[in-house]
Amino acid sequence: MLEAKNLTKRYGSHTALNSLNLKIQPGEIFALLGQNGAGKTTTINLFLGFTEPTEGTASINGISVAEHPQEIKKYLAYIPETVMLYPNLTGLENLEYFSSLAGFDYSKKELGELLATAGLQSQAFGQRLAGYSKGMRQKVGIAIAVAKKAKVLLLDEPTSGLDPKASNEFSRTIRSLAENGTAILMATHDIFRAKEVANRIGIMKEGNMQSVIDASSISANELESLYLKTV
């Protein structure tokens, strides 16, 4: 569903991503771990089509992102580190707006159900986003992704700055999306969250994928030791 073949991105003499080979199947969650500048966000940007690869290909559902940047939008959704959206609009209005930009025309009831699925309390639906906590905004971000019925979800540091409860709720929602067949690529600094939610974990350093681990085969402490040793 989501594949990188020899995917490379260079900015002048600096190699941001070096020959990445990766395949993520439907229903799978792949977590990218690494320090700042390791190449996690570059990988996500290459899959989103925001930047062109220097070499190799990124493809979604067999379609090259670089060649068909508009076509692949049908299949993917994206949640950044901080979901800001429109602070003057309510959660419901934000969801309505973004889902209409994806070509969906949901009723108010359906929009409410989507927000509820993402874990947002119903009292917050009609409140302006300016008054939302970061966790609440992330939930609206999830609702936007769910509303799009995307087959691929790209997450860039989605739990950064969230309190443990919000982080836990977020992880549960992500897992349930994967159970429904969504392929998920998540860049994160949070080793324990990666271990908790992902099927496979990749550790990156200076643009190179150093190791890929089956999350079920390693404990959180072992993962932390490996990570520290790698970076």
């Binding site: 989103l48 925001f50 508009q70 959704a77 950044p80 979901v83 936007i144």
Partner: peptide, 14 residues
Amino acid sequence: QNGVLKIMLCQRAS
């Protein structure tokens, strides 16, 4: 600046 453009671009609008 606040990342909303990326989310918008990930919808269907060019």
